[in-house]
Design a protein around this nucleic acid. Sequence first.
RNA 1: CGGGAUGUAGCGCAGUUUGGUAGCGCGCUUGGUUCGGGACCAAGAGGCCGCGGGUUCAAAGCCCGCCAUCCCGACCA
Length: 585
Amino acid sequence: MKLSRYYLPTYRESPAEAEVISHQLMLRAGMVKKLAAGIYNWLPFGLRALRKVEEIIREEMNRAGAQEVFLPMVQPSELWKESGRWEAYGKELLRFQDRHEHESCLGPTHEEVIVDLVRGQLRSWRQLPVNLYQIQDKFRDEIRPRFGLMRGREFGMKDAYSFDADEPGAEKSYQGMYAAYSRIFARCGLEFRAVEAVTGPIGGKFSHEFMVLADTGEDTLAVCPKCGYAANLEKAEVKTAAKPETDPEQVLEKVHTPGRRTVEEVCAFLKLAPANLVKTLIFESDKGPVAAMVRGDRELNPNKLQGLINADRLEMATPERIQELTKGPLGFSGPVGLKIPIYLDQEVALLKNFITGANEPDYHLLNTNLTRDFQAAKIADLRVVVPGDFCNRCGSEYHFHKGIEVGHIFKLGLKYSKPMNATFLDQNGKEQFFIMGCYGIGTSRTVAASIEQNHDPSGIIWPLSIAPFQIYLLPINYKDERLRKVTDDLAAELEKLGLEVLLDDREESPGVKFKDADLIGIPLRILVGDKTLAKDSVEFKLRNQDKKELVLISKAAMAAKELILAQLEAISQKTDRIATQASKL
RNA sequence: CGGGAUGUAGCGCAGUUUGGUAGCGCGCUUGGUUCGGGACCAAGAGGCCGCGGGUUCAAAGCCCGCCAUCCCGACCA
């Protein structure tokens, strides 16, 4: 491909709208252009990267036994009413009416459609398991789209759905996808971790997120270097390092703390450390109001509380409700005399003589003690993990990473098959609901995440496997006849070998070409100039290394091919290693 | 939806305080000279100053309303 004919508008400066690096570079490198908030055009260069990611996904999904389908983006409301999500899904679901005033929506995900597709068609246990996937745009009317392609409203996604006859089968499907995902991200040339995650509104008992490691990632991962346990911070379990306190219990004492609501204010006023104080937080849930207690220097993890009480819904109580439930104002809540169930973080249970709110304005209690002064409904791990914490499984200290969620695999169980009445006949001729799983990969986000992970001040550094082109052929002066001849011949030879070449035939000064080459980040740059021709050579330079190397013109094409194959082989071997590890888990 | 900010040429910005009919850099066009890290000279093209209304002899600027975009919080691939 000749660059002079290629639609690749690059920019020296990054548009003001772009804050994160992947967004800036994708705009500057002419990969995408914004059409509206969270909605992007893909230009030829960006599309090539996206298609490569999709193709890797396709190959690995097929390899794992899944079959590709293509489902409509516009979906009728009836299906969503059947699953109950017409009401349950919030405003992210873009609803509209057609000319017949028929209610429809743009698909933010396709569970309903896929269940409708298979029910009545898959009738026998003999046909199971089945795993169907598609690569399609989703639309979610996010309140606030941001970070460019990282969180758009319309975005590319691969979604897969498995149907199994029994639990062991469903487990096997899940493991199959875990392995496939590991291969996919390894083949994309990305550093990633699979971590345990909270399931969110899609439901199910547990799930794994696939995280591309990048300092700019929104999520924090706790990874145990010893036993391999890894989890999103939203989920990560912690082993308590603290020892039980053995001080004798002191007399409960009410102390005046005028206007001191926050942990900092109370501690400063009483000249005590936050670890001596225990916060009492009041929540509303579908299981009724509950209280949760964590040390003053800790943060409650609401996901853990929600899991503990098995609630579908959990939110902080309003100041009014706190007044009603505790008889005291916000900021002065405490366990003593409280009539709602109290859940205690395991660390709190180790404390003696701690400070709590008195459930009346401007008073706290000194020397509060569990059992003597109040009872706990349950004691559990309820707090957010912090640096220095230890793995709950093996006791090693956690490592922390920042990550970008690019994939998520869920066990759905009967969540959709049951309300939508999707059944098959088992070996006993008995009607059963499908046991489902669903498995997503953000394709457009994966491209952005790759850039977040692999860039330098000059621009993008593509992993070879998803690079839009493999070779950037750069003649210093394409108007020079001799240079031009060598360049054209080499380009033809490279393309004949099946390599993807972008030839910079523009009438630009060398500096511009170098800058653009670095910006768009094609892995191998081959330079043709007077100096190299004087030695019957061209210059090879890899985007991810500083080293430059002269290669004889006569051997250049084969050398390029070998170099590229070697790199792809390295990725492939790494993929196999990672897949082997994944299968052991 | 709450808080903050910004809309002026394709991109980055100045001009708004103190109203007088729009400017800089990059990019683009033409000609010439250059050619190993965003070259140089010369000549050009390009703007409902986000939209609507108001004030005024006169509005990019002042007033009112709206819209869009970006950033910070609740969602998620």
